[in-house]
Simulated scan of single mutants.
Amino acid sequence: MKLIIFDCDGVLVNSEEIYLAAELEFLASIGVIFERGSYTQAFMGLSPAMWKTKLQSTVEQKSGGTLPPDFFERLDELTSARMDKHLAALPEARLTISGITALRCVASSTPSARLHWKLQHTGLISLFDPHIFSSDMVRNGKPAPDLFLHAAAAMGAHPDECVVVEDSVNGVMAGKAAGMHVIGFTAGGHCGGNHGDSLLMSGADTIVCKYGDLVAALNGLGTMTA
Results as ranks from 00 to 15, higher is better:
N170E: 10
M155N: 06
A113G: 09
D160H: 06
G189L: 14
G179A: 09
E161I: 04
K2G: 00
G45P: 02
I125M: 14
G220M: 15
K118F: 10
E92K: 11
K118T: 00
P69V: 12
L199Q: 10
T223R: 00
L115H: 07
W51P: 02
V106N: 11
R36N: 04
R139P: 01
Q61T: 07
M44P: 00
G222F: 04
G192D: 15
N14H: 04
F185L: 13
W51F: 15
H150V: 01
A153G: 02
H195M: 13
T186M: 13
V106R: 07
L149K: 00
A217G: 11
C8D: 12
H181T: 13
F72C: 06
G10Q: 07
R36F: 07
V59R: 02
A204G: 14
D129K: 11
R94G: 03
H190P: 06
C8R: 02
S38M: 11
K85P: 00
L149D: 01
F26I: 00
G37K: 09
G192V: 09
T186D: 14
N14R: 10
T186Y: 10
M44F: 06
V172A: 06
L3Q: 00
Y19M: 04
S98H: 07
E35S: 13
M155D: 03
G196N: 13
S198T: 09
N219E: 15
L124I: 13
A93L: 03
R139K: 14
L103F: 07
W117I: 09
V169W: 11
S109P: 03
G171P: 03
T206C: 15
L115V: 09
A152R: 00
G10R: 00
I97K: 03
R94P: 01
C8H: 02
P48T: 15
M180P: 11
V208L: 11
V182Y: 08
R104N: 08
K142H: 04
L46K: 06
F128V: 09
A151P: 03
E166I: 07
F34D: 05
L124N: 04
H181N: 10
